[in-house]
């Protein structure tokens, strides 16, 4: 059973239309023939410049959107959650209410979700702000809420988009430690980050995406070294 991948992308290409002006379609290519496998218990890091297609790739993996070409296979019955920054909050609701909806959206029952809220509150260290509308939050506070409400739900595949890159140093360390605790067992993680130190610390494999194509695959050290070369050359 464990020889089967948890998540597999086969020849995945993706593009979409986005209007720049009226009567225009504007075709944007995001991913171009990407194939990769994530085994159970793997922690895969994805590096690439802004706009390289990393977030789209996570959304495809999570099944939020579907690719124009190619196939995405997830192990049958595997649950999946995408943690991303700032997104997914309803601004007029309090942190507590947002955490409740967030947990219920992951399939947690209302009773269990309500029971987990105090743990979320404690982890975020937001104090009384947890009861205030999210529109009053700073970006760091949003990141705390997003990370805590996502991490406390148990899923088979955790997709993390930049969540660990913001917030103050103390919370980053706490979040990193919490992540490392989760990574020991069967937890499968795909991790997008610009923080090279975190990638090296957490991931056992990494890929580099550039202009929608897979440029390199290997250990985080190797991939980051290759990724840095052309970035340095561009300067």
């Amino acid at each position: 059973m464990n020889d089967l991948p948890m998540l597999e992308l086969v020849g995945v290409s993706h593009h979409y239309m986005a209007r720049k002006s009226s009567f225009d379609h504007g075709l944007h290519h995001v991913l171009d023939n990407v194939s990769l496998r994530v085994m159970p218990g793997d922690t895969l890091g994805i590096v690439g410049r802004n706009g390289a297609g990393k977030t789209t790739m996570l959304r495809l993996m999570a099944g939020i959107i579907e690719p124009r070409q190619g196939v995405i296979r997830r192990r049958a019955g595997a649950s999946c959650a995408l943690l991303s920054l700032g997104l997914g909050f309803q601004d007029s609701l309090s942190g507590r209410d947002n955490a409740l909806i967030s947990a219920m959206l992951q399939g947690v029952s209302k009773r269990d979700a309500l029971a987990s809220l105090d743990a979320v509150r404690e982890f975020t260290e937001l104090g009384d702000s947890f009861e205030e509308p999210v529109k009053t939050y700073s970006s760091g506070m949003r990141a705390r809420l997003g990370f805590a409400s996502g991490l406390l739900t148990r899923v088979d595949i955790l997709l993390i988009d930049e969540v660990l890159s913001v917030g103050d140093a103390q919370f980053r360390d706490k979040a990193l430690a919490a992540m490392q605790q989760r990574l020991g067992g069967e937890q499968t993680v795909v991790f997008v980050s610009h923080a090279e130190g975190q990638l090296k610390a957490l991931c056992d494999r990494a890929v580099w995406i550039e202009q929608g194509q897979l440029r390199a695959e290997g250990t985080p050290e190797e991939v980051i070294a290759q990724y840095r070369q052309p970035v340095a050359a561009l300067r």
């Binding site: 309803q90 007029s92 609701l93 309090s94 209410d97 409740l100 909806i101 219920m104 959206l105 399939g107 029952s109 209302k110 509308p133």
Partner: peptide
């Protein structure tokens, strides 16, 4: 039933937030 609970929770929370505004 999960769907119905979620729908109702979203509606109630939104009513609460709306009223406080």
């Amino acid at each position: 039933s999960q769907y119905a609970t979620l729908m109702d929770t979203m509606a109630r929370l939104s009513l609460k937030a709306d009223a406080s505004r």
